[in-house]
Structures are given as C-alpha cells and as structure tokens.
C-alpha cells in the first residue's frame, strides 16, 4: 500500500500521548494499526507505550484498550479473544474484531516471555507486536535480554572493569518461529510499507502472528531524536537488525543491503556504545562484528539467499 493511500485511513493512535519526543514506539504502532481493517482490542504490557498512551483520564487509543500488568499482555489478549470466540459461537455478537497484544522487549523477551509463548502455542487468533528498543526504557534504561552486547545501561553500566552488557541479545524472532506459528516477521520503521505489509499479513493470519519491530529510543540509545528512523536503516544496512519473515515455516529475506556496512556505523552514533571506542575495547568491537556476521550468514542460509 502506498503511503498516500495508507494516510487516507483513520488514525488509530491520536496525538496527545506522552511518549518522548522522537520515540520510535509511536511510529511503529501507528503504522501497524493502519494495517488493521476491523475494530480492534489492543492490549499493552506495562511499559513506555502503556504509561504514555493511557494516563487517566486520557487515552490515545481510538480502539478498545486493556492494560493488565507487565508480564501478561499475551495471556490477557488470549482471554479477550476467547471471550470473542465464545460470544460469537453463541450468537451473542457477529462483528469482526482484530486482537493485538503489544509489549516492549522487557515485556516480551523477559518477564512476559512465558505468557507470550503460551498464547502463541495455544493458537489464539491474535497479533503480538514487540517494539524492541533494547532495554527497560520506561524505568530508566536497565538491560534486558534484548540489549545488544556492549551497551551501556543503568544495570549493565560501562565501568572501570566491565565494559557494558556482557551477553549477546536473545533472538526472540527465531524463538517465535520455532513455535511453528503461521506468521513471524522482523521489521523496521525505516521501511514503512514493508512494516505495514507485514502487519497486514499478521492481522489477516488465522491464528497467532508475531512481529518484532526495532524501535529507536533517543533517551536509551543516547542518540539524536531526529536520527531515530535513520538509525533503524543503519541497523538493517549493518545487518544488526535483518528484515525477514517466516510464513508457514518458510523463511524469506525482505532486505538485503547493497553494500553491507561495518557494525561501527551502528555503534558510533549511539552514546550507549561510546566506551567501545576506547582503545582497550577494540577487541570487543571485532567480536561484535563477528557475531553479527555469523548471524547474518545464518539468516541468509535460512532464507535460501546463499
């Protein structure tokens, strides 16, 4: 769908929410919701998006919305969707609804991981959207299992002895693909049409669909607000955040950079990686580059692009 055409549809997330200036979550959610053709029930795990969009007595959602707790948005939407199926089967309602559960990386990779896995396994007809900004940004930039190796966060600080986060990030998209659900995709807002297309597929999928979308966080990434979208392009060009989808078990690459860029292009503009450029951490950047390269090879192999 052309952006011009997409813009003709109703806005589902209004202005007046209180996400930070330049927050990628707002962009991601607007684009994803645009792909829904039905009234929706939106669930949100506790996090930036939730606290910013529904500060009583205001809601920025044009659709019905539910926030329950941090770790249970997938279970909560499971319940809503089950109610819908029950009421429809009993002939108590006949309207079509879309169901979407949204979590940050904390609510999806970590504390909400079990709830997410359970909901996907049970096969609820719902979309799960993870907006991954790579840390617990809402509580002040603590590390999550989505935080990239080397990142300076408030619980993985770059110190005299330890240079930021010690572990590589968890590949949640792969884990969701391993659930053998009908549709899994990794996307990025710098390609809005690709994101909307994936969201549309996700909404149209019968059964569970999972979207993992990189969302820039100027506060946590220590980057310039205006550069957020550009950074998500650099993430794809350096192969840090590949764009792919897994449709009924078939892997497909959606973006292959013409010239793969060095990982330093991704690290340098972000203050959270600043310490990596000290002479003593040189080896670490090499290590990260190797890891990205290996990961990229795996993705290419799975997508039959070798």
């Amino acid at each position: 769908m052309k952006l011009k055409e997409a813009a003709k549809k109703e806005e589902r997330l209004t202005g007046g929410h209180r996400l930070c200036s330049g927050c990628g979550a707002g962009t991601v959610v607007r684009l994803v919701m645009r792909a829904s053709d039905n009234p929706a029930v939106v669930g949100c795990s506790t996090g930036c998006l939730e606290v910013s969009t529904t500060i009583y007595p205001y809601t920025a959602w044009e659709d019905s919305f539910i926030h329950n707790a941090f770790e249970n948005v997938a279970a909560t939407i499971s319940g809503v969707e089950s109610a819908y199926r029950s009421l429809r089967n009993q002939g108590k309602m006949d309207e079509d609804f879309d169901f979407i559960a949204i979590g940050g990386d904390g609510g999806s990779y970590d504390i909400g991981f079990q709830s997410l896995s359970g909901a996907m396994e049970r096969g609820h007809d719902m979309v799960y959207l993870c907006y991954d900004n790579g840390a617990y940004m809402n509580t002040g930039i603590q590390r999550s299992s989505a935080t990239p190796k080397g990142a300076n966060t408030t619980t993985s600080p770059a110190g005299e002895v330890i240079p930021g986060k010690q572990q590589y990030r968890k590949e949640l998209t792969d884990i969701m693909a391993a659930h053998n659900i009908p549709y899994v995709a990794q996307a990025s807002p710098f390609k809005p049409q690709d994101l909307m297309k994936k969201a549309k597929k996700a909404f149209e999928t019968e059964g569970p669909a999972f979207l993992n979308v990189l969302a820039p966080c100027p506060r946590g990434w220590r980057s310039k607000a205006e550069e957020g979208i550009e950074l998500t392009k650099i993430a794809a060009d350096t192969c840090f955040w590949p764009l792919f989808e897994v449709e009924n078990g078939e892997w497909k690459l959606n973006y292959n950079p013409k010239a793969k860029k060095p990982i330093t292009d991704w690290l340098e503009p972000q203050g959270r990686f600043k310490h990596l450029f000290k002479p003593e951490n040189e080896g670490l950047i090499e290590e990260i580059q190797e890891h990205v390269d290996e990961r990229w090879e795996t993705i290419l192999h799975r997508c039959g692009e070798e």
Binding site: L3, G15, G22, G24, G26, R30, L31, P192
Partner: peptide, 13 residues
C-alpha cells in the same frame, strides 16, 4: 507529497 514525514511522525502530527 511522498508522505514519509506523515509515516514517521510518532505523534500523528
């Protein structure tokens, strides 16, 4: 009128 600004705006503005 490419609508990139429209698409990327986090605040529907």
């Amino acid at each position: 009128n490419c609508h990139r600004c429209w698409a990327f705006c986090p605040d529907s503005s």
